[in-house]
Design a protein around this nucleic acid. Sequence first.
DNA 1: AACGCGTCCAACCGCCACGTG
DNA 2: ACACGTGGCGGTTGGACGCGT
Length: 301
Amino acid sequence: MGRAPCCAKVGLQKGPWTTKEDALLTKYVQAHGEGKWKSLPKKAGLLRCGKSCRLRWVNYLRPDIKRGNITPDEDDLLIRLHSLLGNRWSLIAGRLPGRTDNEIKNYWNTHLLKKIQRNQQQTCDVKIDCDEQQQQQSKKNNNIKKKNNNNKKKKSDMKKDAKNDNHQVEEKIKVYSPKPIRLKASNLPRRDSDNSLFTFESNSSIGSQEKEGTEQHVRNRTTCDNVVFEVGVNGENEFVNADMLDIECESYFDTCGVVDHGKLERLYDEYLQLLSMEDWNYEFDASFAQSFFDSSSDINI
DNA sequence: AACGCGTCCAACCGCCACGTG
DNA sequence: ACACGTGGCGGTTGGACGCGT
C-alpha cells in the first residue's frame, strides 16, 4: 500500500501549463488572493492539482518574480548564503528579491555546483603540488635535524611535543555548519522587494519592545525562545534569526534564564572566525554581536 | 538533414510541520 | 493527545532545446 495521493488525480491535467490555464490561475489569485490551494482549481475552473497551481503561481506567475539571468552579484550572494544556510533554498531565495526557491535550486545544481567543483579541483591540484613540495622540504629538514640532534632529544620532550600537537588540534577553528531544519516562515525576516528593512511579527518576546502597529521593529532583541541578531549587510541592516545560524538558543541561558556570557563570547569568537574565513568577504557589521551582548544584559526574566 | 548527446529548467513527488477539530 | 487536512519544502524527473558530428 502506497501513500495516498495528495489529491484525486483522476482526470487531472499534468505537464506544462497552457496560456489559458495561466490566465485562469492569475485571474483567480488576483481576485481572491493566495491560499486555499486545495479548493482553488475547482473554483478557478482548472483541471489541476492544488499543489500544481500553487507551484505554478509561486514559481512562474507571481508578479514580483524577477526575470532574466542571475547577475554576478546575485551569484556571489547565493554562494555565500549557501555556505551559511546549506540547501535551504526557500531561505536563500528569501534573500534574493524576485527569485524563487526553485530557480535558485536549479541555478545552483546546474551552474554553481559545477563551478565550485571546478574550483575545488583546481585548489586540490594546487594543494597536491604544495603538499609534494612540503613533503620534500620536510624530508630535507628531518635529515638535517637528525644529523644535528642525533639522540639528543629526551623522551619527556617528545611527550611534551605530542601534547602541544594535540592542543593545536583542539584549538582548530570550530565553525557551526548548517544543518537542515525546517523553519516557520512567519518567524523569519524576509527582504522586501524594495530592499527596505525587514520587519516581522515577534512571538513571545521578552524584554523592552517598541510596538508599532501590529508589527514590531526588532532591534538588538534577545528572548529565551527567540534570538534575533541585527546584522549589517552592504551598508544596511537585516535581522537574522538565531535558528538560521543553528545556534541553540537555550544553551546560552542557564536554568534561571541568565545569559551565560562565557558561551556567548565563544559564540562571538567563532562567528568572527567564520566571517574572517578567506572566502568570506561579506561586508559585515561586527557591532551586531556587541549589541547582542548589550541587549542580553538587559533581560529580565 | 538526421542523429546522439548533454544541458537546462518547469513540474512533479514524497515528506514533514503546523493548524484545527 | 490524537488524527486529519493543508501548505511548504527539497530532491528528482523528463521533455525541450542546443550543439556537435
